[in-house]
Amino acid sequence: MANKHEGQAVSWELRDGVIELALHRDPCNEIGSLTLAELEEFVAALPKMSEDTHALIIYSAMKSGFCAGADLRELYRRSEEMNRVDAVRGVRDYLERIHAVMNALDDAPLTTIAAVHGVTFGGGLELALVCDLIIADKMARFCFPELRLGLIPGFGGIPRLKRDMGNGVVRDLLLTGRSFNAIKAQTAGLVSQVVGEGEALRAARGTAAQLRKFDKATALAAKRFIKPIPREELKQEIEIFCDLFERPAVQAGLRKFVESTDAQPYLP
């Protein structure tokens, strides 16, 4: 088994019994077809790698942040090239693939840690939410901005957020589209540790070293007991997303975002 794999959007490496998955697609790790294909490669390799490891750390090598979510420019471009029926079919296929990746990470047979900094928006927040622990740089920000496009989060965000946090916090994030800083996210129960600027990966490595002290099978039993995957709600999410995506308002929202010259285009 290779100890290292370098992709165009994601790379991984085994270090001291820990798998480190780095996101490194410019500008801020937007998840499009390339990243999805490489994440699929990763989750296919994960069962074998997990045999000799006890933890997985997911982090970003990009200065701008952990991940800005789905690649909306690619989504807009592809759906412009198709009629609505084919566009919705394409989106459903994409969502089913990303859900398979997210579920595999959520259910990974080791302890998973997201080490986040900067922008952790939309699909980026959803990727962090599949992890067992989130360690945040104090400059991290968390947000579900999807409603501005006439959509809901589509990578499993609502069911997983609901699994972890009170419904009031979920509604605040979802319905206002506002972003939380790391301290607010920790107060709300989303983040387990807040660390200084540039320290999230180091802190995640320290936490992974602590995890090594425990029996792996026991840790896995505890994880699966406390963190069930909300599979029915995840399926419902795909249906709701596809129903919403059919509406012309969504394509108009995507166009507005892609063509925006506003100084603050991320604002809902």
Binding site: M139, Q264, Y266
Partner: peptide, 11 residues
């Protein structure tokens, strides 16, 4: 840019 403005907001 807008992402750096978010950094300022966090600060």
């Amino acid at each position: 840019d807008s992402l750096q403005a978010l950094d300022l907001l966090t600060k």
